[in-house]
Simulated assay, not measured.
Amino acid sequence: MKLALLSDLHANRQALEAVWDHAREQGFDQLVLLGDYVDYGADPCWTVDFVMARVAEGAIAVKGNHDDALSVDSHHSLGAHVQQSLNWTRQQLSAQHKDFIAALPLTARLGDCLITHANAHAPAEWGYIHSRLEATRSLYATDARFVFCGHMHDPHLYHVSTTGKLGEFIPVDGVAIELSPARRWLAIPGSVGQPRDGNPAACYAMFDTDTEALTFHRVPYNHEAAADQILKAGLPPELAERLQHGR
């Protein structure tokens, strides 16, 4: 089975449309959505409609921290510019949108793959995976051989051997990586809607469960149009600038 792994869409319609077209050209059997469908971007309603439609078709979707923060009862520590865009997003979404997002799970399991937004060891606390140690902590929290996380907007791959040796590397666009059965793996496909590694091209990944090969993809899109929509919506200018520079 071939999985298409999309994370951190962040209401960026232009990026999502480009990635969706690319993924369908590549061909896949199962769509996996790793959270953060809203906030930052100017098209939250369109994006949530897309997620709802794909879930109705059989996609797997988990909740991200920005999705969770839609609830007025949430206790997320977010910056002032995030609060502004989050408040704006709440006003755009319908009750149906909010109910759908609120009902999403924090984790999902598909065979030997664990799917979550932030991490596997404490998914409700929304901690980031910045290092090998944090990645290994997640891997040891589950018996799944493969853990797929969002949250971090940079594509990355971590692994641990049966002897506890840790490793990591930054993937190369379009190059298939064979995931050795002698190791356990944690992959972060990067962000569709807001990459932050200095490259404005959207990120996603494909995983073939039969060959155990993982391929990270970068997809150029009209980030200038997405940035312009953010400005027209009256959202903070820094949210538009991030898209221009992939930061």
Results as ranks from 00 to 15, higher is better:
Q229V: 03
T209P: 10
G64Q: 05
R145M: 06
D208Q: 01
L31G: 11
P189T: 02
D228V: 00
L9D: 03
L166T: 13
G79H: 05
G35C: 09
A124G: 07
E224N: 08
Q84G: 04
H151G: 13
D21E: 14
Q244T: 02
A182R: 12
P44K: 04
A4G: 07
L31Q: 03
P155R: 03
H121N: 06
R109S: 12
Y221E: 04
D43S: 11
W88R: 10
M152W: 14
Q83K: 05
P220E: 03
G198L: 14
H81F: 09
L235K: 09
V160Y: 11
V147E: 07
L114Q: 06
F207V: 08
R242D: 09
S94G: 05
Y128F: 13
Q30L: 15
Q91G: 10
R13I: 05
R24D: 15
K63G: 02
A187F: 03
L133N: 11
L157T: 14
A102K: 13
Y221W: 06
E57K: 01
M206L: 14
Q92Y: 12
Y37D: 03
I230A: 03
P195A: 05
C149P: 11
A103M: 05
G64L: 07
E57D: 13
N12C: 10
A59P: 00
D8G: 12
A80T: 07
L133G: 15
R242G: 10
A11S: 13
R184P: 14
Q194R: 14
E238P: 10
A176F: 00
A226V: 01
H76N: 02
T211Q: 01
A226H: 00
S77R: 05
G193L: 05
E224Q: 12
T107R: 01
E178R: 03
D197P: 05
L9M: 09
A205K: 01
F216D: 00
V62G: 02
L5C: 07
Y128T: 10
A95F: 03
T89H: 06
A124L: 04
H22C: 13
D143V: 12
P44Q: 11
S74Q: 02
A56C: 04
F169P: 08
V32R: 10
K165S: 08
A202E: 00
L235A: 07
Q229N: 03
T162D: 10
R242P: 09
D36Q: 14
D67I: 04
V175P: 00
A124C: 00
R247N: 14
I177W: 02
M52G: 02
L78A: 08
A108Q: 12
V172Y: 02
